[in-house]
Nucleic acid binder design. Structure first.
Lengths: 341, 341
DNA sequence: GTTTTTTTGATTTACGTACATCAAAATTGG
DNA sequence: CCAATTTTGATGTACGTAAATCAAAAAAAC
């Protein structure tokens, strides 16, 4: 049987009330007494029964998710996963609120973050816009002891407790190697479609992609990046134009959203040529394109995993508990047409 | 605030004791009364507070894991993950016991399974050996209302509640496509190293592999399967021999364990030729081989995820709760040297 | 040594559920 | 209609912890 507070009290030779004072860091305990209790806790290997504690406290975990108000498939899916998680709130004692902020607008994000100091949620998850003022705001909240995790897009150099998202440099590198290996010894040019070079995750993917391309596939030349603003129409226009102008394109790496437009352009302009295409994010559109061989591989991050992981981590941090690191690593999924879920 | 048993009692116009009788299916409740209570439960959306219930019951979850006593890296890792999970037992109210049975020995497995009827664990996870008598034993236990999940290797056609493992046919197909694409237009022969064709997961991987090879890469010929019994020494011998005899080999698919021997053979015999190699299971050895380009891609199943998933599912089934399907899908990891964890 | 302050103990209630007991009411059988 | 039986209610205790109160003891200050 695992030890209880009563056992601690008996072992330390103090009363239950004193053990409680120590456990919940309430004042009015002499240093020596506190030490006695802490020793007993260590020696008996006491771990507080979180379930019982939460029951007694009537504890809930008010969590805030801050998302950019962009309407691409991925953000839509992320939102849906958060709603799914909110449905499980009763069982998990969570109380999830979602705040949408204008995309790529550091000032808006900062003002929302600052408002949270008042609201006192027990944890905050945000899709970070990479800007110094956002970093400062996050660091301030961390110092005020709010558990904070970044979601999907990290804020390197900040004090955030955890990042629930994929390693985008590794993703870019992986895309490059897949593309390079799939192309074999062929020489030619590679078109890269991104959302915006202002977003950290896109920059990182490109960085990783370019690095491996340069190191290992010198016969493949990366064309100037097409910035499609994650918009299918823009993406379509840019890709169609690039394919028309440039007959040397033999591969495409789409590292952002807006793949609907990309796929349309490919079907219109590339029927007669053999293109190898790697795209990010598994959606209904990219899935169909993978199956009909328009796309050769899809790199994906599982939004559901990210949301559930963020919640687990925030709860653990709020309770001062350890997280299972291996469980919380968000993996880069690589989908070929054979291993689609 | 979520409704409690008190709210149900009030809404149904009955006493707490009656609600309790209904909730815990105790006898002595008239049909009409039971219906009234059940209606109230539905209308208020009551969900039993599992934490409080477990506290009151002093409930623990005695779980049994049945593993083959084979000492390859993967099983060793799986065992380690189970021990890790057992360390978390106090917090998770689990009580995990591991039983090792001789590998590939249906009779031994069956006799262990039959012994469990007496022991009354609240859940059983087993690495299934694919045999009719095992299926029958599992089905019997399921009928006796034991929650059962298969781990790593499934028992198709049985009544097991869940399978915590990867889709091995998909894994084989994926391996074939990767190998085929990596090899480009080259023609040649492919060596396949398996553990044993008596194991279902190996058979399935080969089945998926062969299917895609035949459909999509007719220029690549699969040589007769080398059965290395998951033993590094045997694997080394077989692969070294095959490479010596056959100059036409341009690719290798290793779908079982014993990769240490494979790697050694590759380093001895294939320095001068360009081989494309796909292997299963990420271990210290395969990881190093991936990094030094001896292996081109590793397909992996995360033993930690499998164990944690099995535990979550067994607990949920024991409580009659729903599982989050998407969370419990074990994904096939594809590792290139760029996305290693 | 007395007063003041700090520290400790003893006790109680609560959280939401499980489970047991005993009495009261309702239903059924004859 | 009475007795036997079934169904229901009322109540209490327990699980492990949190949190509060008030009294008692110990330590510190004077």
């Amino acid at each position: 049987m695992r030890p209880t507070v009563h056992d601690i009290a008996a072992a330390a030779g103090v009363s239950l009330a004193t053990v409680d004072r120590v456990l919940n860091q309430r004042p009015g305990v002499r240093h020596v007494t506190r030490e006695k209790v802490e020793t007993a806790i260590r020696e008996l290997g006491y771990v507080r029964d979180v379930a019982a504690a939460n029951l007694a406290k009537g504890r809930t975990y008010p969590l805030v998710f801050i998302l950019p108000a962009s309407d691409n498939s991925f953000m839509y899916g992320l939102n849906a996963e958060i709603r799914q998680a909110a449905l499980r709130s009763p069982a998990e004692r969570t109380d999830i609120r979602t705040i949408e902020v204008p995309a790529f607008d550091p000032a808006a994000l900062v003002s929302v973050l600052e408002g949270l100091s008042q609201e006192k949620p027990c944890g905050i998850a945000l899709v970070a816009t990479d800007a110094p003022e956002v970093r400062a705001a996050v660091d301030r909240l961390v110092r005020e002891r709010f558990p904070i995790v970044t979601l999907v897009s990290d804020l390197t150099g900040s004090l955030r407790h955890h990042y629930a998202g994929v390693d985008n440099i590794a993703a870019g590198r992986t895309a490059a190697r897949l593309l390079g290996r799939f192309l074999g010894r062929r020489k030619g040019e590679i078109a890269v479609l991104a959302g915006s070079m202002l977003v950290r995750d896109h920059r990182e993917r490109l960085e990783g992609f370019s690095a491996v391309m340069a190191e290992e596939f010198p016969d493949l030349a990366i064309l100037p990046v097409l910035e499609g603003r994650d918009d299918p129409e823009v993406a379509h226009m840019l890709v169609a134009d690039a394919l028309s102008r440039n007959a040397g394109i033999i591969g495409v790496y789409s590292l952002g959203a807006g793949n609907r437009g990309l796929i349309r352009a490919l079907k219109e302009k590339a029927v007669d040529r053999i293109l190898t295409v790697i795209a990010h994010e598994l959606t209904a559109h990219t899935r169909a394109a993978l199956i009909d061989n328009t796309i050769d591989a899809i790199l994906n991050q599982d939004a559901g995993h990210e949301v559930r992981s963020a919640i687990r981590v925030l709860k653990a941090k709020a309770d001062g508990l350890a997280v299972i690191e291996a469980q919380e690593r968000i993996r880069l999924d690589i989908f070929l047409k054979d291993n689609l879920p």
